[in-house]
Simulated assay, not measured.
Amino acid sequence: MTRAVSASLDPEASLDDLEPLLDVIGDARVVGIGESTHHAAEFYRLRHRLLRFLTERCGFTAYVFEAPFTEAHVIDDWVRGGRGDVATISAAGTALGLGDHPEMHAHLTWMRRHNERAERPLRFVGALPVSTGSPLPALTEVERFLRRADPDALPLLTQAIEVAERCDVDSLRAFQLYAELDVSDRDAATAALSRLLARMECMAAHHRCEGRGREHAEATRHLRSAWHLDHFQRDLSGAGLSVGTAELDRYAAETVLDVLAAEPRIVFAMHNTHLRRTPVEHEGSFGLFPAGYHLAEALGDDYVAIAATSISGRAVEGLLTPDGLETQEVPLPPLEPDCIETAFTGDAQLTITTLGPEFGAYQKIRAEGGFMAAPIARAFNAIACVPITTT
């Protein structure tokens, strides 16, 4: 068992006490860093500190974050020296308020400073196909490409845009509006997106020969974002076959693997439920096949999942209402006998422990204001625990 203990969560503190993590990470090409709740200040600082360590000591060159792929491009441009102030850019490039916190602003500001002197810039990439439930931002990027490179395909895109515009609201109410559409309209949008995706993929070689290979690949990734989102909307409306966030998780895994084709090593930041290496085997969970499951299947030991949790504190829970997503702050419940948090004691500001057979009895980990059931020793490679979370 490898254990790293730190007296500080300060992202600017010395990284020397994190050196034991080198044994945890090894030669892994993708390291996932999770969180048991969104909007916790301590998890932002934890990820910031570990991103510094992995970048400065291990040569990681990309940060794939739980943000919408299309919108996150403005953050990638900013951390490479683009214009704008960090608060505005962070809010525009994320979703559900995840970019609204000063801890996230400090995170991105460090990336920008690092890139000013780095031989190889640290990229910021959004992992998800969705921001507020609308595919329009992604379809707008596809339209720009098609107008230049394949105008004959524009009628297919127009069909999809006409349906998307009817669900384009700035909240998760977009999913409810989609569910209220006529079945024929939903089917028309799905067919148009699928046919357009088939055309884009079969013409890849042509666009490469015409010198548009990079632009085509980027437009195809935007289109796949809209395609996955369309199926996710079907799932939520009860018209699909998958369960939970299966489509979002698959897209996130695809994004990581796409980035991995160009970058040597990646830090992958998402909620613990998405990072886990094992499938979900009970009802009422976030999805049957998390992104980490796909990555573990594709990469084996080259994927390391570090779940983050806390012994006590508070969490943020979301509730989907007719007006969108409402959030509330809740106290964390007392620890339960088989939750992994009971394995951590002491007053260290951060403890990271690798998992092995000796942790086989632990079957739960905190998730928002409750617990997520999972075979902890198989679902994650390591646990990062802080004493308290504040929202």
Rank of each mutant, 00 (worst) to 15 (best):
L9R: 11
P11C: 14
E12A: 14
L15I: 11
L15A: 12
L15V: 09
D17I: 03
E19C: 02
E19R: 13
I25M: 05
D27R: 15
D27W: 06
I33T: 03
G34H: 14
E35V: 10
S36V: 01
H38Y: 07
H38K: 05
E42Y: 01
Y44F: 09
R47H: 01
F53G: 03
L54A: 15
R57S: 12
F60C: 04
A62Q: 07
A62N: 06
F65L: 08
A67F: 09
F69W: 09
I75D: 00
D76K: 10
W78C: 00
W78V: 01
G81N: 02
D85Q: 11
V86S: 03
V86L: 04
A87F: 14
T88M: 11
T88C: 06
I89S: 08
S90C: 14
G93H: 02
H105Y: 06
L108N: 07
R113V: 04
H114Q: 13
E116H: 15
P121D: 02
P129Y: 11
L139S: 03
V142Q: 12
A149P: 00
I161D: 02
I161K: 07
E162A: 13
E165R: 12
D168W: 03
R173A: 09
L177M: 13
L177A: 11
Y178Q: 00
Y178W: 06
V183K: 07
R186S: 10
T190E: 14
L196V: 10
L197A: 08
M200T: 10
E201Q: 13
C202P: 02
R208N: 14
E210F: 06
G211C: 04
A217W: 06
E218W: 12
R221D: 03
H231C: 02
R234F: 06
L241K: 07
V243K: 05
G244V: 00
D249S: 02
D249T: 01
E254M: 15
V256H: 11
L257V: 09
A262S: 14
R265W: 13
R265P: 13
A269L: 13
M270D: 12
T273C: 13
H274L: 04
R276A: 11
R277K: 15
P279V: 04
E283R: 12
G284T: 04
S285F: 08
L288A: 07
F289I: 00
F289A: 00
F289V: 00
A291C: 07
Y293G: 01
H294N: 03
E297H: 09
A298I: 08
L299F: 00
D301A: 05
D302S: 07
R314L: 04
A315H: 05
E317R: 05
E317V: 09
G318Q: 03
L319V: 09
L320D: 09
L320N: 07
P322T: 08
L325Y: 00
E326F: 05
V330W: 10
P333K: 01
C339L: 11
E341I: 04
T342S: 10
T342R: 14
T353K: 04
P357F: 01
E358M: 05
F359E: 15
F359K: 05
G360S: 09
Y362R: 07
Q363P: 00
E368T: 09
G369R: 07
M372I: 06
A373H: 04
A374S: 05
P375S: 12
A377T: 05
R378I: 01
R378Q: 14
T389Y: 09
T390P: 02
